[in-house]
């Protein structure tokens, strides 16, 4: 039986169930990536504000989110907030919030970096050829900033996809939980089930994240020239 341990993946709906489980964390990632993209750009622009106070507040938000492990944030939102607000937050919804907050912070920092790395003479030469401020942004600043931003933003997206695997630890039923269920059911028949199931999940994450990182690397080398 041992040699055929891999068959556990193909029994019944097992493989489908794993993929289905994965889609739960992917959905959380997708929602938070969408929110982070929007609010991250906003935060990034605010971080380059002329007003020191605004910059400090944004910086504080970023550092506060960063210094605490994401898993701790998940616990804080899921357990503490529920208790304080006397309102039950579902684990999935808590995950959406935490990953959106985290993604916004990281994305904001990337946007800030893309804006501030723009050499000043680039804008000056835009004004020098008689462009208006709007035109300078439209034709010079934004296209260049995007080239800097997009590869690292895609990287952030893969980081978020990977990190959403943590949601199982606050009880979201996703791929790891489904995996555990499959292993429990088949442990007697297939003692090596856990090797194959966890190996499969490992591989699933890889085939999702690898092409995305590859794509971002391609863009980066292409745009660096």
């Amino acid at each position: 039986m041992q040699a055929w341990g891999i068959s556990v993946l193909f029994e019944g709906q097992n493989l489908f169930r794993l993929v289905d489980g994965l889609s739960v964390s992917i959905r959380i990632a997708a929602v938070s990536i969408a929110f982070s993209a929007v609010f991250g750009i906003l935060l990034g622009v605010l971080m380059t504000s002329r007003y020191r106070l605004i910059r400090y507040i944004c910086r504080f938000y970023l550092e506060a989110i960063r210094i605490i492990p994401t898993l701790v944030w998940l616990f804080l939102f899921y357990f503490s907030l529920t208790k304080i607000l006397h309102f039950h937050l579902s684990a999935e919804f808590a995950s959406d919030i935490v990953f959106s907050l985290w993604g916004t912070a990281e994305m904001g920092d990337l946007v800030r970096g893309a804006i501030t790395s723009m050499p000043k003479h680039q804008m000056d030469s835009g004004f020098a050829i008689g462009l208006t401020k709007l035109q300078v942004y439209r034709y010079i600043v934004i296209p260049q900033a995007l080239r800097r931003l997009i590869p690292s933003a895609i990287n952030l997206a893969t980081r978020m996809i990977k990190t959403t695997s943590l949601v199982v630890l606050i009880g979201v039923v996703e791929v790891l939980k489904v995996g555990q269920q499959i292993i429990e059911v088949s442990i007697l028949k297939t003692p090596t089930a856990s090797f194959w199931v966890y190996g499969c999940i490992f591989f699933l994450y890889f085939i999702i994240c690898y092409p995305v990182s590859l794509f971002s690397k391609k863009l980066e080398t292409k745009w660096q020239q």
């Binding site: 990190t163 695997s165 943590l166 990182s213």
Partner: peptide, 8 residues
Amino acid sequence: RNTPLLIQ
């Protein structure tokens, strides 16, 4: 780089 620590 393309797999989560938890899964590893």
